[in-house]
Nucleic acid binder design. Structure first.
Lengths: 254, 254
DNA sequence: TTCAGTTTTGGTCGACAAGACCAGAACTTT
DNA sequence: AAAGTTCTGGTCTTGTCGACCAAAACTGAA
């Protein structure tokens, strides 16, 4: 921070020694893959304002913790996961009136989990739900406060991070098939990727996926059982898949 | 934001109705090109704590303004520019103890200007300076609070934004030569780019640079006078130059 | 005026990456 | 056994990017 320093002009009608008080909160956008689509964890508000409406989980920051610790605490309270989860800060929101009660500035975090389903089912009945992000983005589900914008920004962020960081690996479990990993990119970017080309991209270079000898059980329609892989060390730094400007085209097309 | 919602577990020893008060400030990292290197605007603190130390400009957020408006106000107070400046929020910082006086959460913005030199010279004497970012990054210049980390994050951000957004155009004036534009990429990324290849990248595609008939005056050592261009519309969306993983190599190499 | 030095600008060439597409392998259910 | 589905390896074409060369256009010095 830094109190205004420059000698001459003082901020008119404003006394730096009496700073305005704000509440600071931390909100967490929790994303996961379900049904080959990107999903979002929401909670139903039990208190005013916006009582009964859907919102993303969050809470007040404590003076003794860092912002990151606060986000981690909120994530653990909401989902039970407290492992070294992928937590990324992506924005701060402080428009006047965004909370009708008082001046609140919130710092928003993005968390990517591989399986929230079980967590949600085991929680306090019907006040938590996993919904497709599309329904939150197009307004089918109305969100409290300015959470609609926060979710939009979070999705923007994860789309960009997908080819800048190894965040894609956080969507899948400790072992996974290449098709599984491919659906992450397809769902987040809204594109169709060629399976063979995708495989080449991640298998050719060392360090992205390491084969476990095992194979996955095929789904309902059968098909050749896919190899099971573990994530390699490269995901810590980058991604093997780059987003291309024109969508990849499929067989029957223009 | 959102008060904690889930029924069962309440945050232990914590009463949501009595939230802790924070001061919220906005800090602006002002970057510009000078002497073919990336520079940073610093101010000298006139009050405790860290009195006499260098810091990035900033100040308290007012309850009636948005975070972006606060950043714009601080930028204008410090440099006098209030045009639609390129202002990007890139992080929030709230570690306990980062300000010894009280609990402060700051939201950091990045501003890119084309020429701060005149502004600095014309301001209140010696309490503002333009320094190379390298000196701030390597510790040659010690910064107040956690501003060293904030500056590091800002530089990281601008490095990434250089090929994701059109931020490079904000570094140059209304008309510029291609060599000028090229030094922006070279200085921020710390690479050497081939002039001919660079030209092709921006000239081939329509919309990046539009030629004004004029030519620039060559520098001291002479050389063919370069064409003067204006920035096209494409800079609003993206960048014509992509960062390559291995540095581009020059003539005499391995 | 000439010359050496410097910068800009246009061109070519090869390496590499990415996408389109095909076909065989391996499993499912009927 | 047959049909359907998915996985996996292969080939081919295309386009992009960087390395490199050379001419053009200007400076200052000899």
């Amino acid at each position: 921070m830094g109190t205004k320093t420059r000698g001459g002009r003082a901020p008119e009608g404003y006394d730096p020694s009496k700073f305005p008080a704000f509440a600071v909160t931390v909100d967490v956008v929790i994303l996961t893959m379900a049904d080959s689509r990107l999903h979002l964890l929401l909670v139903r508000r039990g208190v005013a304002p916006f009582k009964g409406m859907w919102a993303i989980p969050g809470g007040f920051k404590r003076p003794t913790e860092t912002l990151g610790e606060a986000a981690k605490r909120e994530l653990a309270q909401e989902t039970g996961v407290d492992s070294a989860a992928m937590l990324t800060q992506f924005g701060a929101y402080g428009d006047p009136g965004r909370d009708p009660r008082m001046n609140v500035v919130t710092v928003a975090y993005l968390a990517v989990l591989r399986d929230v389903g079980a967590v949600v089912a085991g929680s306090d009945a019907a006040d938590a739900a996993l919904v497709p992000v599309s329904e939150a983005l197009d307004g089918t589900i109305e969100l409290a406060f300015d959470h609609a914008k926060i979710v939009r920004d979070a999705v923007e962020r994860v789309r960009g991070d997908l080819d800048l960081t190894g965040i894609a690996a956080a969507f899948v479990g400790p072992t996974f098939t290449l098709a599984e990993l491919r659906t992450v990119f397809e769902a987040v970017w809204g594109v169709q990727l060629d399976g063979a080309n995708f495989r080449r991209s991640v298998v050719t270079e060392e360090g992205w996926v390491i084969p476990t000898g095992r194979r996955a059980r095929p789904g309902a329609p059968g098909g050749k059982p896919a190899e099971l892989f573990r994530a390699g060390r490269m995901w810590k730094y980058s991604s093997p898949i780059r987003r291309s400007q024109p969508n990849e085209r499929r067989k029957g097309n223009s």
